[in-house]
Design a protein around this nucleic acid. Structure first.
Length: 675
RNA sequence: GGUCCCGUAGCUCAGCUGGAUAGAGCGUUUGCCUCCUAAGCAAAUGGUCGGGUGUUCGAAUCACCUCGGGAUCGCCA
């Protein structure tokens, strides 16, 4: 493999410094502020300081003693910066040759010794994916693709959270409607979202009413249904709460709760009237006590012995999961394996695990509830020292006061064996930042169970949540933006542009689909995962603003040039295969900048993987595409002035198409030949 | 109150293992299709990098303090 100029030069100087002065400081390279100064720059301050000489002096030595290869045309010193100017012709010839020789430019084996699990999405099966958890899908997908591109064996997993308490009301509601032969005419997960929002509201209204009756409100006299706040309730409840003495601690909170539920109820009645009303009637007539039925369902499913209940939960979860997979596939996001939380629970290992932690005194009792002593474990077993944590880590509840195990229990057991499932060396859990503490306690529990090695290989790749401009995102109120919905909106926008071009109906549809997917994916990917973002639907979907289509457009333009070459009597194959030793020509600034950027691609990918920044791939891609568009405008290819220029530019165009193909593969974006 | 994250142009964001004059897109103003796809290009406009102190030859970048915003901190996941 031909080495890359930037690295090559850096290595040359580095080796010299090490050999001659055995320096310890890292040599770093940067780009000079303007091309007149050079193409690559080495600030020598740190190393000069280490050697206790002036940067100028060091630089003079370097210039005098290193014999630079031909690719370096000019060396000069500018106030402590050693600036090198490349011989453009040699540089370009070398870089483009490297690109042509590799099947996939930028692909390498830097991670080939790794086996990596990436877990992502793992969304609750209570509704469709929304852009919040979809952000995790995109980040996880690209992270996996990146690792894989760099030679790692990658296994992408989805943890199915089918044991949560919140699913029970959904299951109950789903079967009420099914038995009533209610017709479903939409995507399954979206439909479940409606059922879930309704049923959970009923459950909460019941709980509110129970609370009120504990405070002295006469529940039976006022309410038609236990699961509805009717006109009488809306009048009598505030009156009742007002009549309570001011000292009553519950007064304010209950009032707030009441207001919140009133709002949710009316919002649901407005948004999904049919499902809501139908379900309300069915629940009122068939379920005497939703709360206790819910608890019973949850308990039965956790035990896994009641076959009917198991079938019911699985049926509902499967519908949600299928919906999620369908959505993800639209965006070329795929999982290799699905792990069910219920399977973990039924394995019986939770009890063994708890017993061991108990035995080691890592559990704290508070009545029936049990907490994991995070801080004690972290302190005693060196976690704090290892990761330099100086504050106190709060304990986490893993069994509630009813004696029911909470999800961290399953999560701990799951992670005991997760790495084994793929014989993995590393595992990245792409999970929202708000799960920080639970994720930490999983690792701490593993420490407590004497599995520090496993724990240290598990990483929480956290990302911030997504909010909506001008809207809230609330699953409970069936108010969220789904990727499905964005996809359709984007398609429509794109079609208005394609209509002006001469494509068949079928082609139009195909192009619109692919651009819609890439635009949305790109829009989400390019944001720093650590930033909580305000998501703007209009921008995400607008092809004139969105840079996903900008990337694809640059690829289409490149291919368009190549495909039209024969009309100009230019044989691309011949140019590419030509083994003549003559060097290529660079005439304009635009082409020079483009080639230099292409050179950087491999190191950008390695850096992105190392620093876990999939978003940096997106941002680099943008720079590259932008640079190509500038080239496209400034440098005619097929109509270039001389045969030599044509030859050089054809090679550049072919190379950029290869660069983009690599980047598209890493980002999971489809390359379109025309658009 | 403790912890974590964020605060860069009117808006949405890059840049952060310290490097030279702070970078895009959108917006507003103007040009460019007889020439490889105008989903593009060129130009103008726009910034006390939240504020302060420190470390340094050099700070948007590092440390400390401070002010804003978000998340989380015992029974939902």
């Amino acid at each position: 493999m031909i080495s890359r100029p930037y690295d090559e030069i850096k290595l040359l100087i580095e080796n010299y410094l090490k050999k001659e002065f055995s320096t310890k400081s890292d040599l770093i390279w940067s780009k000079p502020p303007s091309v007149e100064l050079g193409d690559i720059s080495f600030p020598l301050f740190n190393i000069a300081k280490e050697l206790k000489i002036k940067p100028e002096e060091l630089s003079e030595k370097i210039i005098a003693e290193i014999s630079f290869p031909d690719i370096v045309e000019k060396v000069n010193l500018q106030g402590g910066f050693l600036n090198l100017t490349f011989n453009r012709s040699i540089f370009v010839t070398q870089v483009l040759q490297t690109i042509l020789e590799q099947t996939k430019y930028g692909q390498n084996s830097s991670l080939s010794s790794e086996r990596i699990i990436v877990e992502h999405t793992s969304s609750n099966p209570t509704g469709p994916l929304h852009i919040g958890n979809f952000r995790g899908s995109v980040l996880g997908d690209v992270l996996g693709r990146l690792f894989s591109f760099l030679g790692a064996a990658v296994n992408v997993r989805y943890y199915v959270n089918d044991l949560g308490r919140q699913i029970a009301p959904l299951v109950i509601g789903y079967f009420l409607l099914k038995e009533a032969k209610y017709k479903i005419e939409e995507k399954g997960d979206l439909w479940l979202g409606k059922v879930y929002a309704s049923m959970y509201t009923f459950l909460e209204i019941q709980q509110l009413k129970q609370k009120l009756s504990m405070l002295g409100w006469k529940i039976k006299d006022s309410s038609v249904s236990l699961y509805r706040l009717d006109d009488t309730d809306l009048k009598t409840v505030p009156e009742f709460l007002n009549s309570l003495p001011k000292e009553n601690e519950e007064k304010d909170n209950t009032h707030k709760w009441f207001m919140k539920l009133t709002r949710i109820q009316s919002s649901l009645i407005e948004r999904i009237p049919e499902v809501y009303e139908k379900l309300n009637k069915l629940t009122s007539s068939k379920i005497e006590n939703l709360e206790s039925t819910t608890n019973q369902y949850v308990k039965n499913y956790q035990e896994g012995k009641d076959k009917l209940i198991v079938e019911k939960f699985r049926e509902v979860t499967k519908i949600a999961l299928d919906g999620h997979v369908e959505t993800l596939n639209l965006f070329a996001i795929f999982h290799d394996d699905f792990d069910w939380e219920s399977d973990v629970a039924w394995s019986g290992e939770v009890q063994t695990m708890l017993a061991e932690l108990e035995d080691k005194k890592y559990l704290r009792h508070d009545e029936k509830a049990r907490l994991l002593k995070n801080d004690i474990i972290a302190e005693e077993l060196g976690y704090k020292t290892k990761y330099s944590i100086s504050y106190e880590i709060p304990d986490t509840i893993i069994i509630n006061s009813e004696g029911i195990t909470l999800y961290p229990c399953r999560d701990i057991v799951y992670h005991l064996h997760k790495l084994e499932k793929f014989n993995a060396s590393q595992c990245y859990n792409v999970i929202a930042k708000m799960q920080q503490l639970p994720q930490l306690s999983v690792r701490l529990a593993l420490y407590g169970l004497n599995r520090t090695d496993t724990a240290d290989r598990i990483h929480h790749f956290d990302y911030e949540y997504v909010s909506l401009i001008g809207r809230k995102m609330a699953g409970r109120e069936f108010d969220y933006v789904t990727p499905d919905e964005l996809f359709v909106l984007a398609q429509e926008e794109i079609k208005t542009i394609i209509e002006e071009r001469n494509y068949s109906e079928e082609e139009q549809q195909n192009i619109a689909n692919k651009i819609a997917a890439s635009s949305i994916k790109y829009h989400i990917l390019k944001m720093d995962p650590q930033k909580s973002v305000a998501f703007d639907v209009k921008k995400a979907v607008d092809p004139n603003e969105n840079s996903g289509s900008f990337l694809q457009y640059s690829y289409a333009r490149a291919l368009s040039i190549l495909s039209r070459s024969s009309k100009h009597d230019i044989n691309v194959q011949k140019i590419l295969e030509s083994t003549e030793k003559e060097n290529l020509i660079i005439e304009k600034q635009a082409e020079w900048e483009l080639v230099k950027l292409m050179e950087e691609l491999p190191s950008i990918l390695i850096k992105a993987a190392k620093s876990l920044r999939p978003d940096s791939v997106a941002n680099f891609s943008y720079s590259l595409a932008s640079s190509f568009h500038k080239f496209y405008d400034a440098c005619p290819v097929l109509k270039a002035e001389t045969p030599e220029l044509i030859k050089s530019r054809v090679r550049i165009v072919f190379s950029i198409s290869k660069c983009l193909e690599s980047l598209f593969e890493v980002m999971g974006i489809e390359a379109l030949e025309k658009m």
